[in-house]
Write a protein that binds this DNA or RNA. Sequence first.
DNA 1: CCATGATAGACAGTGGAACTCTCCACACGC
DNA 2: GCGTGTGGAGAGTTCCACTGTCTATCATGG
Lengths: 242, 242
Amino acid sequence: MRISELSRRSGVPIATIKYYIREKLLPAGNPTAHNQADYDERHLRRLRLIRALVSVRGLSVSAASDILAALSENEENTHLALGLVLGAMQAEERKKPPQEGEEVAAGPMAEAERLIDATGWQLHPLSTGRTQLARSLQSMAQVGLHLDWQTLLPYARLAEQTAVLDLDQLSAGGDDRLSLAERAVQVTVLLEPVLMILRRMAQESESFSRYGSPPGEEPPAGARPAAGEEPAAAPGETPGAA
Amino acid sequence: MRISELSRRSGVPIATIKYYIREKLLPAGNPTAHNQADYDERHLRRLRLIRALVSVRGLSVSAASDILAALSENEENTHLALGLVLGAMQAEERKKPPQEGEEVAAGPMAEAERLIDATGWQLHPLSTGRTQLARSLQSMAQVGLHLDWQTLLPYARLAEQTAVLDLDQLSAGGDDRLSLAERAVQVTVLLEPVLMILRRMAQESESFSRYGSPPGEEPPAGARPAAGEEPAAAPGETPGAA
DNA sequence: CCATGATAGACAGTGGAACTCTCCACACGC
DNA sequence: GCGTGTGGAGAGTTCCACTGTCTATCATGG
């Protein structure tokens, strides 16, 4: 297909497609002439994946590029692709503090190590997970929320169970004609917002069952705080669209 | 204290502090003269919280502003503050597709509804969680990952348990002199990156224990059975066609 | 009293990211 | 032939999060 069809089918403007190609997020079409190239379904899928990474997950274009590159390297080896994708994501996180001044303090690092020990997780020695975790803990400590490994352990156990589900998902999805590597990206990266939404809803519900009134609902007597949510918020659709 | 001290103690440049004040993220100092105002510990804590929201969690300044505003309205009522914060976060997510063209299709919406039914969660009728969930599911479906409510239910259960831990954290933290509302922000918003890091590490470990070689490592001998047999896969149902 | 220096407040400017536009010479279909 | 579509490349645009500059104070030390 030609670029205009790719654009029409993906909903992405031609100019943007060209931009993605320039930035190496999308491989160029197969050139058939000096000013003609054609694109196939793979381009379309890749393009949709890019949009999902960027708009659903909110990754930067360069981070998406890293992930996609990792994915291209290993279309057929899911396991390896998963590793590369995880590595690429970690790289993304690392882009925020590019200046090396921000050393991770010993305290948070030790806490992270102890947590990982306690879980018994097998991490690749080069994995940056420890450092990332330590960095996050440090940031939280700076705002006054000191989390120790005992507190985090139950969270880690739940993360563990989530990961089991994730890997099951990966294995189960063989029927699609998507490459497993692509599924790895979807399951590890794109599922994150979904999980966070689920957590927020669960928090709302849990808060309700503990304190009685749904959060955001008006308190028993007066003093409606005004900062709340607009009733007409969810624009357009009616939830009853079953 | 004066602005220079606030800057020194927080590590945030004066110009940036002024910017935050202009943008209403930070309340202005208490003016003592036309060109003098003084700031207290509350300003310092708020400033650190802003930095955490923006750099740790990656929120936009305006989103952080919404959350902080919600928080200010209700310094003392944790429960209410939690609701407001959740609402503010949802508002943030909503900023991505400002154009109203993007209707949520009936399919994803129905799936979201069914999932929420299945969990038995008590959601505020105005909560945008459903819509957000549906929107995410729709995005994932567009890239070929069709998740039905049966598949999501175990994830939801884990989210539920996570939420229980979260609320425990909130209740337990009374010893700090931080307002409960601030803790609510920290626990709901700032913990997200930590949980995602835990999940990624757990995935790495789980992948290791299933496939033997740490992800990112190269497989022992060539041709690792890419898609062939999956050992512990428990494909109860295939989420493929819907 | 006055020089010095730190403010507060307003507003313009900067740099990076993610597009979006404009050209151009060519190719394709009629 | 000729008008539209195309690939490629670079310039331009928009938005955001700052950052710098300016002016009118005000605080203080000499």
